[in-house]
Amino acid sequence: MYTQAMDTMAREAKGQVQAVKSAEEQAREAAFEARIDAGEFIEAKDWMPEHYRKTLVRQISQHAHSEIVGMLPEGNWVTRAPTLKRKAILLAKVQDEGGHGLYLYAAAETLGVSRDELLDALHSGRAKYSSIFNYPTLTWADIGVIGWLVDGAAIMNQVPLCRCSFGPYARAIVRVCKEESFHQRQGFDALNVMMTQGTPEQRAMVQDAVDRWWWPSLMMFGPPDGESVHGAQSARWGIKRISNDELRQKFVDATAEQAKVLGVTLPDPLLKWNAGRGHHDFGPIDWDEFWRVVGGHGPCNTERLAARVKAWDDGAWVRDAALAYAARQATREQAA
């Protein structure tokens, strides 16, 4: 999900010419590949091929951007949560997402790129974030469904990355995943209360939210494997260990069962258990919608980016003040 860069960059990479490598370069690369094959972690100070560095910066920063843009749809309900307990849970959750953004920007910075540069790429539209956050949160049930499905899909996607070859990213992911599973349980719990103790109106609200978020959640795993050209090399580097379709299948299998427990219907008439495969079959995903939203034409793309840019621009004088003060302090200390 948060790793969608890996999928969309494949389209952009087509047609790029591979430069000829020197013998020395080839040897270094072979040694690097051998370390990866041996399951060693690559650390920031280690030599790495430029393409590896670039791919990681792109993936980690997209992940970080997704965390902070993801604060917006949920932040939309912080001031309207229906009980004080839910308000506290939601505010803490959104705060966690900010924390994920911080660890991930820090991991990307170890690769020699600053947070400001990465944010500039986000604000100028050059960098992407997960397209799931371009959908609106219309009712309170959306908050529960995001926890259940979106955090759920994020975990499914990210757990394999705990073994990613780049140490700082792998370690950040371990922390992130722990909190994401907490978020998923809280989301499920919020929905469960509405379904089991709620009014018919509340149950309808949950069903409506599930109807709207189900397909976008499946899209979070990225395009089908056939269209995902980058797969092989990223898999070797452990940046992406399990294919999009495999992860999506795992997610469908897990959530189909959870939907039964909740008593909601997943909006797919073709969804059914296939004993022969040992998996659930499910209907076709509207990939045109996916590419449309990735390409900027989702319901909230403009608003989400504008909200981030506004927060950044409105905060410029605050950051300038902090820098000016720090510089003045440094001068004073030198003088003293």
Binding site: I68, G75, L91, Q95, G98, L102, Y105, G315
Partner: peptide, 22 residues
């Protein structure tokens, strides 16, 4: 303070304002 959520001048302040709000 919770109204700031996601709109603070920097990520560290998003965290701090949420923290104080909590």
């Amino acid at each position: 303070l919770s109204e700031w959520c996601g709109h603070a001048p920097m990520l560290e302040e998003d965290m701090a304002l949420a923290n104080m709000g909590l």
